[in-house]
Structures are given as C-alpha cells and as structure tokens.
C-alpha cells in the first residue's frame, strides 16, 4: 500500500477514535465540576508521534468540529472553548515535541493538558468579558496535570509497542 494512502487511512481511523472517545467521555462522572479526563488526547499524541503534525492537526480540528456537530453546540461558547483549548494544546505539544527533546510523550501530554485548560478558560474569559473565569483555572489545571500524565503514559506505551508504522 502506498505511504500516502496509509497516512490518510491512519488519520481517518484516528479521527474516528478521537471523536468516539471524546463523545463518550463526557458521560464519565467527574468529581471536579467542568473537568473531563481528556482521553482523546491519547489518540492525538499517537498521531503526533507516529505520523506528523499535519495529521495531528487534522485530527484535532476534525474532532472539535464533528463532536460539536454531534452535541449540537456548533459555534456557541462551548464550541469556542473546545476549539481554543484544543488548538492551544496542539501548538504547545508540537512545539514541545520539536524543541524540548528531553521530554517523553508523558511530558508533552501534561503540557498539552495544562494548556488545553488554559485555552478553555481564556476563551470563556473573552466570551464572558470577565477575568473571573480564571477562578477555576488552578483546580482544573491540577486535574488536567493528573490526567495528562495518565494519557501520556498510555500513549508512550503504545508508541513503544511499535505496532503502527507508516513508513514500511
């Protein structure tokens, strides 16, 4: 199979998985109000490490748009929070993977999770025109760090298993 076809197939399957995980994880009860486990970040990390930043961007943006469409909140505040958080997280993960070579997928994941929360709070602050939204940032970010480590460990384990190869 040609490499390009493999990449497209890998991106499409990854997007489908990210959407499914993102949609169903909202039904997992959380003890921190407004927090989510961010399990779909495992898929984004895998795409980032196995494919390239382009495929990862496709999965990130595709996930945001399609999950919003499924939940019926397209272009409302929740959509913009999701978009800002996901995009900021993606940028930070790509930059940290490129420039902070000593970080493993665990470190990249926790940075991504932290900045995802920051992006969401920033979007909400702009939308509500109030800096008070940052009141929730410390608790949400501490929770994000914990889930970021967990998702990073899972992603690292899968990357190390070397079961996906796009170059052969």
């Amino acid at each position: 199979m040609r490499n390009g076809v493999k990449r497209i197939a890998f991106s499409a399957v990854s997007l489908a998985l990210a959407i499914a995980i993102s949609y169903f994880e909202s039904y997992i009860p959380m003890f921190v109000p407004g927090a989510k486990p961010g399990l779909s970040n495992i898929i984004i990390l895998l795409v980032l490490y196995i494919a390239t930043w382009k495929e990862a961007l496709f999965v990130v943006l595709g996930k945001v748009f399609i999950v919003s469409l499924l939940r019926g909140n397209m272009f409302d505040v929740i959509f913009f929070m999701s978009l800002t958080g996901s995009f900021l997280s993606y940028i930070v993960m790509v930059l940290s993977k490129v420039f902070l070579k000593k970080l493993t997928p665990v470190g990249v994941s926790l940075l991504g999770a932290y900045f995802h929360t920051l992006g969401q709070v920033m979007a909400l602050s702009i939308y509500m025109a109030s800096i008070e939204m940052f009141f929730y940032f410390p608790l949400l970010s501490l929770f994000a760090l914990a889930t970021g480590v967990l998702t990073g460990l899972v992603a690292q384990r899968i990357v190390e298993m070397n079961i996906f190869s796009l170059n052969s």
Binding site: L100, K102, L103, T104, V106, G107, L110, L111, Y114, F134, F135, F137, P138, L139, S141, L142, L145, V149, G152
Partner: peptide, 23 residues
C-alpha cells in the same frame, strides 16, 4: 527517563498551587 517530565510536572503544579493559594 522521565526526569524532565517530572520537572515540567512540578513546575506547572507549583504554578497552579500558587494561584490557588492566592485565590
């Protein structure tokens, strides 16, 4: 192997704890 991940984790956690205590 996770030394730098740990440093990043501690730095970010301390930032959040500092903001939390301030609030």
């Amino acid at each position: 192997s996770h030394l730098f991940d740990g440093i990043a984790l501690i730095a970010l956690a301390l930032t959040s704890v500092a903001i939390l205590l301030g609030l």
